[in-house]
Design a protein around this nucleic acid. Sequence first.
DNA 1: TCAGTGATTAGG
DNA 2: CTAATCACTGAG
Length: 173
Amino acid sequence: MESGVRLSRDFYTRDVLDVAPELPGKNLVIRLDDGSIGRFRVTEVEAYRGSEDQACHAFKGRTARTEIMFHEGGRLYIYLIYGMYWMLNIVTGLENIPQAVLVRGVEDYQGPGKLTKSLGIDKSYNGEDLVLSERMWFEDSGLVHPIKNGPRIGIDYASEYWKTRPWRYFLSP
DNA sequence: TCAGTGATTAGG
DNA sequence: CTAATCACTGAG
């Protein structure tokens, strides 16, 4: 896969609803265990928006786990779910406004738990700065990809309103 | 359909 | 300290 231009701070510090729809089609770039650089086209993401969004972890306030979401955009938020799967999230927005984008799939690895397991992404990436990191970042491929959107997955605990926000964005097949 | 698996969190 | 919860996955 061809390389592109690394996304800068300005890309991430916008509102999550502006950032998330632009992520499908961008490349996730990561230094793999064998030292090689892997490039994977992002295929599916979800937006989690601030302290009002019942489905957002920061809904319950600032805790040790959600602290990074309150940071300025461009960092990674990594957490373990069901004791087995690391979830890869990109913090967006301005400082003190907790937002993040869950990366649910990249080309070749569909599913938020499967992609982190396949690429070796774990807790050590929590807080990683995507603007400065030498082992992981995102880049603009220069290509334009049509996307579609729909409701988020796995948030049955939220009210009907928040459950139905169409904040999942994916490449149009 | 349903169990696995352990960090995180609120509550006593 | 305890116990409930969980932005998931794969086996049956």
